[in-house]
Design a binder for these strands. Sequence first.
DNA 1: CTAATCCGCACAATCGTTTGAGCAAAAATA
DNA 2: TATTTTTGCTCAAACGATTGTGCGGATTAG
Lengths: 338, 338
Amino acid sequence: MKETLTTISERTGFSITTISRVLSGKSKKYRISEKTSEFILKEAKKCNYSPNIIAQNLRTNKTDTIGVLMPSVANPYFAEMASVIIAEANCRKYTSIVIDSMEDEENQKKNLATLIARKVDGIIAAPCGSDPTLFEEIQKMQIPLVLIDRFFAGSHISYVTTNNYLGGVEGTNMLIRNGHKNIACIQGAKNSMPNKKRVAGYMEALRVAGLQDNAIIVGDEFSIQNGYMETKLLLGRKPRPTAIFSLSNTIGLGALKAIREAGLNIPDDISIISFDNNIYMDYLTPPISRMGQPVEEMAKLAVRLLMECIESKRNLCTQLELSPELISRDSVKNISSI
Amino acid sequence: MKETLTTISERTGFSITTISRVLSGKSKKYRISEKTSEFILKEAKKCNYSPNIIAQNLRTNKTDTIGVLMPSVANPYFAEMASVIIAEANCRKYTSIVIDSMEDEENQKKNLATLIARKVDGIIAAPCGSDPTLFEEIQKMQIPLVLIDRFFAGSHISYVTTNNYLGGVEGTNMLIRNGHKNIACIQGAKNSMPNKKRVAGYMEALRVAGLQDNAIIVGDEFSIQNGYMETKLLLGRKPRPTAIFSLSNTIGLGALKAIREAGLNIPDDISIISFDNNIYMDYLTPPISRMGQPVEEMAKLAVRLLMECIESKRNLCTQLELSPELISRDSVKNISSI
DNA sequence: CTAATCCGCACAATCGTTTGAGCAAAAATA
DNA sequence: TATTTTTGCTCAAACGATTGTGCGGATTAG
């Protein structure tokens, strides 16, 4: 039998109001006597009462729920991100609803509508596509919103992301320092901000080194398939690039497959550096050098930002860029001595 | 301005009841005229009405939401599982709430309570611990429940899992076929059913081959750390095992690290086969042989089972075991010729 | 001894839906 | 024309909580 305020009220003789106030810890505020208070608490415990959250939500217009929109949970990078967000939100008594747009704007729109209809208290989103209007509308509806990883230029929406430009520069520089002059870059979703910035960083590093004419930018998707295909094509070029900069972990995996199939050796025949830090990269042969993004930190910050928005009941506009970290392993060969 | 049935009612002059019936597609059933119907629909579209789901939930006692309890979303195996469940539920108009027990029974209890309080329509759970009472209580509350991956012996709760016993047998046999007689097994959470079954399969295969006295079973956690530590210890044994059977992908990664640190070569110095099928295993050197679990199929089946329970409003007791698949790569050496 | 204050609690409206029952007018039947 | 049936819609009660206001009685102040 499901207990409600009404059943307890009938059983104890106190009004629903009183029961509610006691059980929500407002006895003092509404001057309920100690005796009554304890009595009701004991009774509630005895019958194992737990409030109907749906009813609370309806009445208070608060759900203690946040929406988490990811572009592809299949990507370990976003899977980890979602996982940290869930845990972090949970610490703060928030429940998470995770949705996956699968990099499809239609899905994204539908799913966001679902979140809003479900009256989430706030949304953390890694958007897909390059159209900010959907998110600006959300902002206008006064729904707390924090973007993560991806964001829109010139928009007044809070976000936390990696300094992808810096990542692009440093990754490329690392290859240049090792004597590489013929560096190909395999990019992901072209219209996503992180991708644009990484590519810009790559170009800038080449430019500074006077290598801008050697730039090779290929690819269009953050997927294994894309990394595989583009690498196949790259390996057929003459002259063959001496190094590949893969702009995501998935692309990197695809590249590795292509390189292996070509019977080439890393780093002797070709060097590679990838974006993202996945633990298994250390177990590959050789371990892969990479630009790690501070996923955990970003996720935690995003939750924190969102909480601040929710509590202050207004959308702040805090835009954060965290530095990536170069993790140097053995997939880059120094060819400057040649 | 937020539109509700009331505002539309006031604006059009029709009663809330009529509006509600039209908008929920019950015009025929309740004999609302075509004209009225269309008028209301148009009006609703114009003002961009969307129903308050919370109010619907409260009234109908249905939330179109399922709870997904995972023991560790950090584990790629469960991350993929969660991802497929979310997508599959989404196809059927269900929203998922994912929670992570982090292999902690206290968390599990609290999180399950949250799910129930939020009135999810059903739960898909990969439980941690070995105590079924929590789940049997859920079953008694008439909440549709399907276990996935892990289950409890002798319990009448639906589940879908891999035939882990078979996986244990076949994995071990594969090593035996290749001439290995000294096979160590690194297990995960001892009280989880999949682990028990895998170990039982391992033992049985050894027994059939007359090798039961050579059995070495170590470890106690599905984690990289555990795989790493136990492998370190195994490598110090004399005689050193010629093969390792790792009972999860995480354990496998840890084992690889230890083997590499010891300066040993796979498969020349030691053979290894792991449970779980992660794409990156093909990119390791050498690619790792493994017992793949049909994660996607299991997840889809679990959702389907759950939906059937929800629709039939009773907990069926369907218990399914899907066969694992041996994925043969290059991490096992045939030493029978020696 | 009267007026003001405080204590302890209850009334009733509200959140936005859904739904069984009912009611007047129109249409069909007798 | 009188009766029945059908049509087209509305009433009002839920669902289970929260919350501003109010109301008697006890206590204190004047």
